[in-house]
């Protein structure tokens, strides 16, 4: 464990909690892509199947359980409890265009051709693009609530911090995972445009709105 990994995990946790609280407090999931949240639930489920096969640490196990629980709670709030507020018309990204190629890539490019390993690889690839339906939704409506931008910032920051963690581990632990690194770079790059808007607009007290 190093400082980048810990702050990355906490940033990830903050993002998940911010989103849950935003939906719960406002009793609404307006502006939130249910499709992205389903993809994240799939990501956690396929990656954390190793909860059943290997134990790493109490920290590792409890964070995994919290992430999975929160992901399903979020999906439940969007599609069941506050379904009436879900903006399905604007959540029109075709997720099969992500899931199918990512599934194919996971079968072709992995560390080991075994069931759990392919699911792990699938989850890494899928996570890197899972935010696209949400970003697509924002580009379609042209705006996002400020609390939603805080969520996105924490979620993007998490993988950026993990990149620093992998550099650290490369030098100090001889740890090198090409699949995670390439996917992590892709994931972080997808947020760059958003990071720019967040810093130049939201942090200066303005609402995030895109030019028409």
């Amino acid at each position: 464990m190093n400082v980048f990994r810990l702050t990355g995990d906490l940033s990830h946790l903050a993002a998940i909690i911010i989103l849950l609280l935003k939906i719960w407090k406002s009793r609404s999931c307006a502006g939130i892509s249910g499709k992205s949240q389903i993809l994240f639930a799939i990501v956690f489920t396929t990656r954390y199947l190793d909860l059943l096969t290997s134990f790493i640490s109490i920290y590792n196990t409890s964070m995994k359980v919290i992430y999975i629980g929160c992901a399903y709670a979020t999906v439940y709030l969007i599609y069941m409890k506050f379904r009436a507020t879900y903006d399905g018309n604007h959540d029109s990204f075709r997720v099969e265009f992500l899931v199918v190629p990512v599934g194919g890539l996971a079968v072709l490019v992995n560390h080991d051709f075994s069931f759990l390993e392919i699911l792990w690889t699938f989850s890494i690839y899928l996570e890197s693009v899972a935010i696209l339906p949400q970003l697509f939704m924002i580009s379609k409506t042209g705006e996002a609530e400020t609390i939603t931008t805080h969520y996105l910032f924490c979620l993007g920051l998490y993988r950026a911090l993990y990149l620093l963690n992998w550099i650290w581990r490369f030098y100090f632990e001889s740890f090198f995972d090409m699949i995670a690194i390439v996917a992590g770079v892709v994931q972080t790059v997808l947020y760059c445009d958003f990071f720019y808007l967040y810093i130049t607009k939201v942090l200066k007290g303005k609402k995030l709105s895109l030019p028409a």
Partner: peptide
């Protein structure tokens, strides 16, 4: 130097 990977992250 020998490099390895393991799935010990979140």
């Amino acid at each position: 130097r020998e490099f390895t990977y393991q799935h010990d992250e979140l």
